[in-house]
């Protein structure tokens, strides 16, 4: 038996919105300590990894490990039934054929229930190597979103360069070439901060289209953390306060 109640249901709604353009069918792993999922996009360029700790739920109970196969597109449709102020409860029996989703608004006394049919998904789990990222950039999530969005109108690809002084996002396209450079900024206004932790400089290129999809999660977190290593995919990380973390992995563009 699995049951989890999230007081701030909007968070779950935002998570689903943040992954639905990247992955279609997903196995949700339920364990006594929390909820997680890992899934790749169909082209195997991007991977979504979500970890939610039981501590962030108002109520959490999972007797055993369970795998719930869910169509994210259908889950997103169901989530549309939720009001932004609703509490959300997820329920599934052992050997479940459906996931029961309950939306409750204690103020308006409105309750919505939906039994989402589960599906069997033959997905492979990837082992992501423990990596010590040589460059970690923490940047306001709204600002990073805006940079990616505007650069995408100029080029399909962005080159990210890090060094101890700045992180640089540069593009080169038919329109011309240019870059946005952000220096280390630990100003008093926390939201303006850009924190650079660079032990080794990195220069890699990425498809901006994917970054724009990841940035849908910027509503979940004030800051985006970019973890880079010259020989590894980029990690774009959004911490969800008191609940867990949503990470996206993106394979770099490489010379043919």
């Amino acid at each position: 038996m699995f049951e989890a109640k999230l007081t701030e249901g909007l968070i779950l709604k935002k998570i689903v919105e943040s992954i639905k353009d990247i992955v279609t069918d997903v196995n949700i792993d339920i364990s006594p300590s929390g909820i997680s999922l890992q899934a790749m996009d169909s082209s195997h360029v991007a991977l979504v990894s979500l970890n939610l700790s039981m501590d962030g739920f108002e109520h959490y109970r999972a007797d055993t490990n369970m795998v719930l196969g869910v169509s994210i597109a259908n889950l997103a449709k169901v989530m549309k039934l939720a009001d932004n102020n609703d509490q959300i409860t997820l329920q599934a029996d052992q050997e479940a054929t459906h996931l029961k989703i309950i939306f409750e608004n204690p103020k308006t006394e409105r309750t919505t229930e939906f039994n989402l049919n589960l599906i069997t998904i033959d997905s492979e789990h990837l082992a992501i190597p423990e990596t010590e990222y040589s460059s970690v950039v923490t940047i306001n999530s709204g600002e990073f979103s805006k940079i990616c969005k505007e650069l995408f109108s100029l080029s399909e690809t962005v080159q990210i360069t890090t060094n101890t002084d700045y992180v640089q996002f540069s593009v080169e396209g038919e329109v011309g070439s240019g870059q946005v450079r952000l220096g280390h900024n630990d100003s008093e206004k926390k939201e303006d901060q850009t924190i650079l932790e660079v032990s080794e400089s990195v220069q890699q290129q990425f498809a901006i289209r994917y970054l724009n999809m990841f940035n849908k999660a910027s509503t979940l977190s004030s800051f985006t953390r970019l973890c880079l290593h010259q020989e590894q995919p980029l990690v774009v990380e959004f911490k969800i306060d008191n609940l867990g973390v949503l990470k996206y992995f993106l394979a770099p563009k490489i010379s043919d």
Binding site: V45, A127, Q205, Q232, P233, A251, K253, S255
Partner: peptide, 14 residues
């Protein structure tokens, strides 16, 4: 020219 690499080149199957 740059081509898009795959995550399979970096991560192994469990």
């Amino acid at each position: 020219a740059k081509g898009q690499s795959s995550l399979a080149a970096f991560f192994t199957k469990k």
